[in-house]
Design a protein around this nucleic acid. Structure first.
Length: 862
DNA sequence: GCAAGGTC
């Protein structure tokens, strides 16, 4: 009987490799593919079997709305709460689903080695779906391997105790995905649409909302508000000094400080009047300063931010690289407990050849390293440890600093605790009590390797109980309470972890998000300072519905979906119930948005306060202002009208020319880059096309760039069918586009690099270069109906005989003109034009399908 | 254009 095939799937390629290496004893064949497949023969459940071990790369699918909900202008966000959702491949190019389906063919068993958490359980079912296995199929069985580390012992143990995937846990993740998507997208679309373009200096592409990012921002703003509303208070402290063995010693007051000057002065007077201190108690205490447990992601990120000045996003990227290069272990883990099988000796051995800590490590190995602290084992991955020794020039500066910390932390975790003796001497004088504290280190322990954590020693002179000492002076210290500093990134990470906002992998993403959305800025010492936009948003939520920005919103969702995970409630009933609650909150928020808007009004300038004057309004003939903040637009302060403009380019006045239809001054818009189009437009027509159906007639709504710009239909002059205006399509069109159903029009300001561009796609045709002037005429070519153009060559470079400069003809049918034009598409040549080209490349793809409804001849006929 | 979660 042929051995049956077993397909095993892990969450990432590295785990697949580890599992295959263990099960095959290193004798396997590795096949490339979407992800690697490791094959070998062995026994499975007591029978001979052929193994194939492969992996996914995280989630295979992610959720989104169907396309009919994708257009912001037609979808009411309220409808999103009841919308269908679809799962699509997260990374279609990776073809993971196809890969799994192919590998599963002919396999009689599927073993799921996904990470043992809820997300992993969810991915199990994604894998099952792709492979075509069914959970309760007696002929093709599905098994779940449960493992807490990728060690030989654990892998074999898991294989001997195969279980079933847990659908409830997977459904809990489905629920979270749907709730996060619907709530996040609904709020984001609404507030973006509401505020975007309303205020002049509100510069934001999208004003996002999310159950993780918004509470994260909330923490930063909360601290900001504490600082902003802080009222400093004066306080006073009595500070007696004594001189012992020639050294002056300042004593601390048992009352610490008082906020009443008169009372503090009264105590000072009492101490001065007495003038003699009595030692009333001396106590010594052994203090233990614990070595750290194993390093997990969150702690690495905190140290990276606070001590190394490396932000979480960058720190994770560096750690990821160190991991793939084999210098450190897997960097995404919550666990701080080392697996029982961890080989401390060899890891320490690897560390012993370093010049900074090598000596220490060798001593540790010789004297016997310490058992690490217990830590917590979440069952995901072992703590982050070094794997092999690296040097600075192997890694680069920041990667080296991060790596160095991983090494130091590891060594510290198996070092002795630091121990010191704390001495407290207490005094009384004038009925008041004072003390001083000394510290003497007895065992440096792990602080040798983490010197920045060293206990600072303080020596005290010898005192005896009952001893009387003269007070040398009594100061009254005056201080002022100070506000806290802005929230540090490291503090924020702690808060997020504690309150269950995000995970070790996603915490850096959320922090990055609120930076990118312009809600906070990272300032010196990696402290997060909220921007006006960030503050105004949070204050707005606080006015309307504080729940929206509180951390509880995340824990609420988590706690609800946990009911699904435990099988206590039905998945879809719970999702409907939670969404109903959020929908109510959403509707209330929409109803109350004026409250938030009034805060925006106070913080952001109205449109008429900002912008520079650019062009004249055709209605009132006064100048309008150009507002460059996105989305860029014109604002007429007199008419109080807004005219949206094409985005992502530069705009200027076009020679004070005006539109014959509405008298608005024309503008010239240039898209970026050397091959970007430049075209004229009338601000009024651009927003309100004068001829019905114009956008549809010319396909502008599908042409990508123009139909969707700003909030108008987006009709520049090159789409305008005005019969006599010299800027219209009718006047500037030359011939059909060789690439699409558009029309090539003359770029009126392209001299001396004259060119035609397509009014629909990005096809570009270069005209005779260096010509003095090129213009369209009203004549048509009798052969192909293209517009006859007039070229006035430069007299020094004219190709015409006898030094003549003026030539009139059709660029398709006139031999001379045709030999001087060149088709460009984006940055590369794609087609050889005409008969006589001078060494231009041949080949390229075939032409586009037949013209639709454009009577003019095309390039095809050459 | 939008969320949060996995991994690269």
């Amino acid at each position: 009987m042929a051995p049956s095939s077993v397909l095993m799937v892990a969450e990432k390629p590295s785990i697949a490799l580890s599992i295959a290496s263990v099960l095959s004893g290193g004798r396997m064949f590795t096949k490339r593919g979407s992800t690697e497949v490791h094959e070998f023969d062995g026994t499975f459940l007591g029978f001979p079997a052929h193994y194939k071990v492969t992996s996914v790369i995280g989630h295979i699918f992610s959720v989104d709305f169907p396309s009919k909900y994708q257009d912001w202008t037609v979808t009411d966000p309220t409808d999103l709460f009841q919308a269908q959702i679809v799962k699509t491949e997260t990374n279609p190019k990776a073809h993971i689903c196809r890969h799994l389906s192919q590998e599963a063919r002919g396999c009689g068993h599927l073993v799921l080695w996904l990470d043992c958490d809820r997300e992993g359980e969810n991915i199990c079912f994604e894998v099952i779906e792709c492979t075509g296995f069914r959970v309760n199929d007696a002929r093709r069985r599905v098994y779940r391997a449960r493992f807490s580390s990728v060690t030989e012992k654990d892998i074999f143990k898991a294989l001997d105790n195969l279980a079933q995937p847990n659908r409830d846990e997977a459904l809990a993740v489905d629920a979270r995905q749907e709730i996060d998507l619907k709530v996040g997208v609904a709020f984001t679309r609404f507030q973006t649409s509401f505020f975007q373009g309303k205020y002049g200096n509100l510069d934001s592409r999208v004003i996002s909302y999310g159950p993780c990012q918004t509470p994260t921002l909330g923490y930063c703003v909360q601290r900001y508000l504490q600082i902003a509303t802080f009222k400093p208070e004066k306080f006073w402290a009595v500070q007696p000094h004594i001189i012992v063995d020639g050294y002056e010693l300042q004593l601390e007051w048992e009352r610490h400080k008082l906020f009443d000057l008169d009372v503090a002065m009264m105590f000072q007077k009492q101490v001065i009047q007495d003038g003699i201190l009595e030692v009333i108690d001396i106590s010594e205490k052994q203090e233990n300063y614990s070595r750290p447990p194993g390093l997990n992601t969150v702690n690495l990120l905190k140290v990276a931010s606070s001590a190394l000045g490396i932000g979480p996003q960058t720190a994770m990227q560096l750690a990821e690289r160190l991991y793939t290069q084999g210098f450190i272990s897997y960097p995404r883990t919550e666990s701080t407990a080392y697996p029982s099988s961890f080989d401390f000796k060899s890891t320490l051995g690897a560390m012993s050849n370093n010049s900074t800590w090598g000596n220490y490590v060798r001593r540790l190995l010789a004297d016997g390293y310490h058992k690490p602290r217990l830590g917590t084992d979440v069952g995901d991955h072992p703590p982050i440890t070094p794997i092999q020794l690296a040097s600075e020039n192997m890694l680069g500066k920041d990667a080296w600093r991060l790596y160095q910390y991983v090494c130091q932390h590891f060594i510290a975790s198996v070092s002795p605790d630091c121990k010191y003796v704390r001495t407290k001497v207490e005094f009384s004088v004038g009925g008041e009590f004072f003390h001083c504290i000394g510290k003497r280190v007895t065992v440096e322990g792990f602080t040798c390797i983490m010197p920045w954590l060293a206990v600072s020693e303080k020596n005290l002179p010898q005192f005896t109980i009952g001893e009387k000492i003269e007070v040398s002076k009594v100061d009254l210290y005056e201080g002022k309470t100070v506000p806290p500093d802005y929230l540090s990134e490291s503090e924020l990470i702690s808060l997020m972890e504690k309150n269950g906002i995000g995970t070790d992998a996603s915490i850096p993403v959320h922090i990055n998000n609120i930076c990118e959305r312009n809600y906070v800025q990272v300032q010196a010492g990696r402290r997060l300072v909220p921007t006006t936009l960030g503050i105004t948003l949070i204050r707005g939520y606080q006015c309307i519905d504080p729940d929206l920005c509180l951390p509880d919103i995340r824990s609420f969702i988590e706690q609800q979906i946990t009911l699904i995970a435990k099988g206590q409630v039905d998945h879809s009933r719970l999702v409907q119930h939670v969404l109903q609650q959020f929908k109510q909150k959403y509707c209330y928020f929409v109803k109350q948005i004026d409250k938030m808007d009034s805060l925006f009004e106070a913080q952001f300038s109205q449109l008429f306060d900002s912008g520079r004057v650019l062009s004249k309004c055709g209605k009132c003939l006064r100048y309008m202002k150009y507002i460059s903040a996105l989305p860029s637009r014109l604002y007429c302060g007199t008419c109080e009208d807004v005219y949206f403009l094409p985005q992502k380019g530069t705009i200027k006045l076009y020679k004070e020319l005006t539109c014959p239809l509405d008298n608005f001054e024309l503008l010239l818009f240039s898209m970026g880059g050397p091959e970007g189009k430049t075209f004229p437009l009338c601000p009024y027509c651009y927003n309100s096309p004068p001829f019905e159906g114009i956008d549809k007639l010319f396909g502008a709504s599908e042409s990508g760039n123009f139909g969707k710009l700003g909030k108008g239909a987006g009709m520049p002059c090159f789409l305008c069918p005005h019969p006599t205006c010299r800027h219209s399509l009718i006047a500037q069109a030359v011939c059909a586009c060789p690439e699409c159903s558009g029309t090539l029009v003359l770029d009126p300001v392209s001299a001396p690099k004259w060119r035609l561009y397509c009014n629909m796609c990005n096809c570009l045709v270069l005209l005779p270069q260096g010509a003095h002037r090129i213009a369209t005429t009203r004549e048509r070519c009798p052969e192909c109906d293209s517009t006859i153009i007039e070229v006035d060559f430069n007299k020094n470079t004219t190709p015409l005989e006898d030094g003549a400069t003026l030539h009139i003809g059709c660029i398709l049918c006139d031999d001379l003109l045709h030999s001087l034009v060149e088709v460009k598409h984006g940055k590369s040549f794609f087609k050889r034009m005409g008969r006589g080209g001078r060494g231009r490349g041949r080949g390229g793809r075939g032409r586009a399908s037949a013209r639709r409804g454009d009577p003019r001849m095309s390039f095809r006929d050459f």
